[in-house]
């Protein structure tokens, strides 16, 4: 069963084609790595999958359902969650409040103007569980402004995990992390059960290589190579893209 299918996707800004006829098929439970140099159109592809950007043509399917026309804010309700390459968190609030916002986004009570958010026991508990999962339980009440960069990276992941997604889109989850922090995040990602499908963007090839089942190499908005880890690494076109001609 396909979790995520992108077919014949195209997007251009003026004369700049950021997505050129991209096809992508990710099986349920698969770990897919999308690599490519800067400006390859990786994040633009993510933005179209999540609905942040509207593609010029092509379709996007989630578990067989065509979601191309589904508004961005409905897609999380269909089981899609994402993280951002540039950390996009609520800097004035605590970690637990950040994660509660993620949980609340999928809850009907997000429209409720009368109850107290802080008294929603189940939300608080679920949020704490998600924070424990990324190893930040001891600083859950800390304002985000007082956390380190590496901790914020993990809050990003905690927010996505808290939504219990079927498809998880990770945009460079290792960006800016030290070697130790990378190892921690890697452990965390490996612990995610296989009923979650993961698509991960990574700029740097060697960081997440052993995590992936299959790898897609994008370059100038096009899929250049796709295959298993060894196939992609062995392919001469990969070398060409990464090392120049």
């Amino acid at each position: 069963m396909s979790a995520l299918t992108v077919s014949a996707l195209r997007k251009s800004f003026g004369g700049l084609h950021v997505t050129k006829n991209v096809d992508l098929n990710v099986e349920a439970g698969e770990r897919r790595l999308i690599i490519g140099p800067n400006g390859a159109g990786k994040t633009s592809l993510f933005n179209q999958i999540t609905g942040d950007l509207t593609p010029d043509s092509g379709t996007i399917r989630l578990f067989g359902q065509d979601i191309t026309q589904v508004p961005a804010q409905r897609r999380p309700h269909l089981g899609m969650a994402r993280t951002y390459q540039i950390i996009t968190l609520f800097a004035r609030d605590t970690i637990v409040h950040n994660v509660m916002l993620a949980l609340l986004g999928l809850s009907k009570s997000r429209w409720n103007p009368f109850i107290s958010l802080g008294r929603q026991r189940h939300l608080v508990e679920d949020a704490r569980r998600a924070i424990d999962r990324v190893g930040l339980g001891h600083i859950a009440e800390r304002p985000l402004a007082q956390t380190s960069y590496g901790e914020r990276r993990r809050v990003e992941i905690a927010m996505a995990l808290a939504q219990n997604p079927k498809v998880l889109l990770l945009d460079e989850p290792f960006a800016g992390l030290s070697i130790d922090e990378r190892r921690d995040v890697q452990k965390l990602l490996l612990a995610i059960p296989r009923d979650v499908t993961i698509v991960m963007i990574e700029h740097n090839m060697d960081v997440a290589l052993d995590f992936a089942d299959r790898i897609t190499l994008l370059h100038f908005g096009e899929v250049i190579v796709e295959g298993t880890r060894s196939e992609v690494v062995a392919d001469p076109r990969t070398r060409e893209v990464y090392l120049g001609h």
Binding site: D52, Q73, Y84, T88, A102, G105, R110
Partner: peptide, 12 residues
């Protein structure tokens, strides 16, 4: 604070 993130979290 983060309108885009709010959309991605499922808020209208």
């Amino acid at each position: 604070d983060q309108p885009r993130r709010m959309t991605a979290l499922g808020y209208h």
